[in-house]
Design a protein around this nucleic acid. Structure first.
Length: 574
DNA sequence: GCCGTTTTCGGCCCGACTGTTTTCAGTCG
């Protein structure tokens, strides 16, 4: 182990000690030692062997022994033990400028936050404001910093990719002379997390150099990673890799092929192989002849398949369905008639009830379901019964002002024993109730599943909120037997939320098709804490479509009277 | 953690800056 590596470990020990609240002078001793090791002249191993290292001011007996162990064995027991004593994710938080060990310690101890994604989510819910010594400025700064850090990591949330996609579309439209272009890859398939962006270009003049020039002119901080005659890969200043794929007559094929997924293409290739065709990475062949396609639909038609929407090209049973003409009509933006799961300043939202409602009306929705947190969610300023009554009064007043139908609801905490955070008497007064878990995540699968099922059995619960509690790129959800929960929801007539917040996208789309096969309604909910978040409903629709959702499967694709009817009969049923 | 010694434990760098709070705490360099 060389000087640099040893110094880094000593620094890390100092970080951990600081996070653990050790006396600052001990921490300083480690930092000091790290600097000494980094700067010391001569070979470190010789200095250890001769004992000369111990003579340097700042290296006492204790540090000398630790450095000796590192140099000789390549590891350090003390360090390994120390690392285990705090959550790994806390190290990431140290990268945030403006957050030192003291503040991270507070965030960890008071809010239980251990990862960047959790911290970001907490900021968006204004939970940092609740901590002593924290204010809006720090919270905003933290958010900005997290945004920066996220750019350097490998995978990205769709809310991060979306504006980049927009920027690329604008760039292509105004700078390149194209016949057509498509952003393909996992973005087109609306995967829940995305690594890079693929753009297939069909240029009027196949001028490769001019394309590169235009890119460099518009994005001066962009680095071209590699390029050849029909491929430009760059690390964009957005912090994500973008590949431009230049096409010719093979535009349709390239769109098809780069959309993927790998699993879908494999199955597709296997199928057409049986028919005497071959799928290669540059085209579809019959014997030695490449087949021309003028658009993607033709590719499917050629093999007697119904068009498979990109979102469901994941290598499950979509090819069989397409061959049988059984691809369902997937839900579209225009089908969404309302939104549930809207927070306001009554609990942890940033915008007032009136502003949230006004925005929903502006977006063309016919109904809006208000659902602030329940009383136990103290971290989110959950509503006591008194405040609830106040909110209902305000809603009644606002209803006179707005055309959009306002539904009174709540996001009620499912307590650890599966009971709910309001009495049945209170619950009966809501138009709808979303039940979600926000506390005590550490459970076995059986415990979590039973906790949720018990909550769903309450006659007033209409929607199960974010069923696993996962935060994408942040933390795994609590383990649940999702099929069992869906079966139970089916029996009880409870709808399940597809939480459209890009951090969640929970229920996972992989279970949606099963839910719809059981007749369980899915509610596509923005879980909005600010007016700008209501659009999550639209942004995440594509990921919901991956579960083959149709209009008939979606609770908020019903009109107002249908929804009211659903809510009413649901209670009678139980 | 280390240092320095009045050899047994008290002291260990600090000012600028920022944000929160209204006199101070935390971070950074």
């Amino acid at each position: 182990m060389d000087k640099k590596q040893v110094a880094e470990i000593l620094e890390e020990i100092a970080d951990i000690l600081e996070l653990k609240g050790e006396v600052e002078f001990k921490v300083r001793a480690y930092r000091n030692a790290a600097r000494i090791i980094r700067d010391v002249k001569g070979d470190l191993k010789e200095l250890v062997d001769s004992g000369d290292l111990a003579k340097i001011k700042g290296i006492g007996p204790n540090l000398f022994e630790k450095i000796k162990e590192l140099v000789n064995t390549g590891q350090l027991k003390y360090y390994e033990e120390l690392k285990k004593s705090i959550p790994e994710g806390l190290f990431e938080l140290l990268q945030i400028r403006g957050l030192g060990p003291k503040r991270i310690k507070a965030i960890y101890e008071k809010l239980g936050i251990t990862t960047l994604a959790e911290l970001e989510y907490a900021c968006r819910e204004n939970r940092l404001l609740k901590l002593e010594g924290f204010g809006k400025t720090i919270q905003d700064k933290v958010l900005k910093e997290i945004e920066r850090l996220k750019r350097s990591s490998e995978y990205h949330l769709i809310s991060f990719i979306f504006p980049i996609v927009k920027a690329i579309e604008d760039f292509v439209n105004s700078n390149l002379d194209v016949i057509d272009f498509t952003i393909t890859g996992s973005w087109r398939r609306r995967k829940e997390i995305i690594r890079d962006i693929d753009v297939v270009l069909n240029l009027k003049q196949k001028n490769f150099n001019r394309t590169i020039e235009a890119i460099q002119k518009n994005f001066p901080h962009t680095k071209i990673l590699k390029s050849d005659d029909n491929f430009i890969s760059l690390h964009s200043e957005f912090g994500v890799s973008v590949d431009f794929i230049l096409s010719d007559e093979d535009y349709a094929f390239k769109v098809f092929y780069t959309t993927g997924s790998k699993e879908f293409l494999e199955k597709f290739g296997k199928h057409i192989g049986k028919l005497g065709f071959e799928l290669k990475d540059d085209g579809i062949y019959k014997n030695a002849d490449k087949i021309d396609f003028s658009n993607e639909v033709e590719i499917f038609e050629k093999f007697k398949m119904k068009f498979i929407p990109p979102e469901i090209r994941e290598g499950f049973d979509e090819i069989e369905l397409a061959l049988n003409g059984e691809i369902p009509e997937l839900i579209q933006e225009k089908d969404l008639l309302g939104v549930f799961h809207i927070h306001s300043t009554y609990s942890d939202g940033s915008d007032t009830l009136e502003d949230m409602i006004a925005e929903c009306e502006k977006l063309g929705f016919k109904f809006v379901g208000i659902s602030d947190h329940s009383k136990s969610a103290y971290y989110a300023g959950g509503l006591t019964e008194d405040r609830l009554i106040q909110q209902w009064k305000e809603i009644d007043e606002l209803q006179k002002k707005f055309k959009i139908k306002i539904l009174k609801g709540a996001e009620v905490d499912i307590l650890p024993d599966g009971s709910l955070d309001y009495s049945d008497e209170i619950l009966s007064k809501f138009d709808f109730v979303i039940a979600s878990i926000h506390s005590k995540f550490r459970m076995t699968e059986e415990e979590a599943t039973n906790r949720i099922i018990k909550a769903m059995q309450n006659p007033y619960v209409t929607i199960l909120g974010h069923p696993t509690g996962r935060l994408l790129l942040g933390r795994d959800g609590y383990p649940v037997d999702m099929k069992k929960i869906i079966d139970e929801a089916s029996k009880l007539g409870v709808a399940i939320e597809f939480n459209a917040n890009p951090h969640r996208l929970d229920i996972d789309w992989r279970f949606i098709n099963y839910a719809r096969s059981k007749g369980v309604k899915i509610s596509i909910n923005p879980d909005a804490h600010a007016i700008g978040e209501i659009y999550y409903t639209i942004l995440s629709l594509g990921t919901a479509r991956k579960g083959m959702l149709t209009k008939q499967d979606v609770l908020n694709a019903m009109n107002v009277s249908e929804v009211q009817n659903f809510l009413k009969t649901h209670r009678l049923k139980k």
